[in-house]
């Protein structure tokens, strides 16, 4: 499928800040499931920093915006040709050993409910079956409810209130998978909304679980599926913050207002 992405993040400050520094994981890397045909990231008045690929194969780039400045936009436009790989990440150049993704972080810590889910796959001979099972159970445990959680919500909190969004599903799945001994990582990216116009954000997140013999396999517990040709993979990390497409900070105080517009569309070929 040929997908186009238009993604604008606008930061406004109630009074000018002395500058902005950002670290972007905002350019997809090509792999067997996605071929990046065209990709542009611009930052208004921004000075580009160094570009590099990290050990996980993600494309990173630093940006600085000198101040004083009261409004900054980060604009992403691109075209990607995707293929349905049934969730399997193949042809992705990376060096990070999967065992690094067994470490838990604050938002991906298990609680009793997640331990219970993890225990259901004890003794499973096939990691792939285990991963499918965990993903299904997490999807059932947390109902997709926009607005029920915030960016700081932990897996355990989402489990308690039984509601959340894709970030919460991914965190919960990672917590359970790691507890079951399966390396897991958080993936941020884009998703083409389905034909019925389901409310899922086009800026999406899911989990990848390491399956010996197969490699990294994506699981989207929120949508009860594995990523296919509707998905564009941007980058990964131990949790949402570690995998964030944009991490940034301002110089000097200022109250930030954030406005994000994302559109992912299929191009008729």
């Amino acid at each position: 499928m040929l997908l186009t992405v238009d993604h604008v993040t606008r930061y406004r400050y109630d009074r000018p800040v002395r500058g902005l520094v950002q670290s972007h994981r905002l350019t997809p890397a090509s792999n067997d499931g996605q071929k990046v045909l065209e990709w542009n990231v611009t930052v208004s008045d921004g000075i580009p920093g160094g570009t590099f690929r990290d050990g996980a194969g993600d494309c990173l780039k630093g940006w600085t915006v000198p101040g004083p400045v009261s409004e900054v936009s980060v604009t992403v436009t691109g075209r990607v040709e995707t293929r349905d790989m049934a969730g399997v990440l193949r042809g992705h150049r990376e060096w990070t050993p999967p065992d690094c993704y067994l470490q838990d972080t604050l938002p991906t810590r298990v609680d009793a409910a997640l331990v219970e889910i993890a225990e259901t796959v004890r003794g499973f001979a096939d990691a792939l079956d285990a991963a499918h099972r965990l993903s299904a159970l997490v999807g059932q445990a947390i109902a997709y409810t926009p607005g029920a959680t915030q960016s700081q919500t932990t897996a355990s909190e989402a489990m308690t209130q039984k509601q959340g969004v894709c970030q919460d599903h991914a965190h919960a799945l990672l917590a359970a998978a790691r507890h079951a001994g399966l390396p897991g990582r958080y993936v941020s990216g884009y998703l083409l909304a389905d034909a019925e116009g389901a409310a899922h954000d086009a800026a999406h997140a899911w989990a990848e679980i390491w399956v010996q013999g197969l490699g990294w396999v994506g699981f989207d517990a929120a949508n009860a599926c594995c990523p296919d040709d509707r998905y564009i993979r941007l980058g990964s990390g131990l949790d949402a913050q570690d995998a964030a497409p944009i991490r940034g900070t301002t110089r000097g105080p200022g109250v930030e207002h954030l406005d994000v517009v994302v559109a992912v569309q299929a191009v008729q070929q």
Partner: peptide, 21 residues
């Protein structure tokens, strides 16, 4: 921007500069 987000001691963006040489 790379490690502890609450650190006031460091330099935001340092790791990107470091990793790009």
């Amino acid at each position: 921007l790379c490690f502890r987000p609450d650190s006031m001691l460091g330099i935001p963006g340092l790791m990107d500069v470091y990793r790009s040489g």
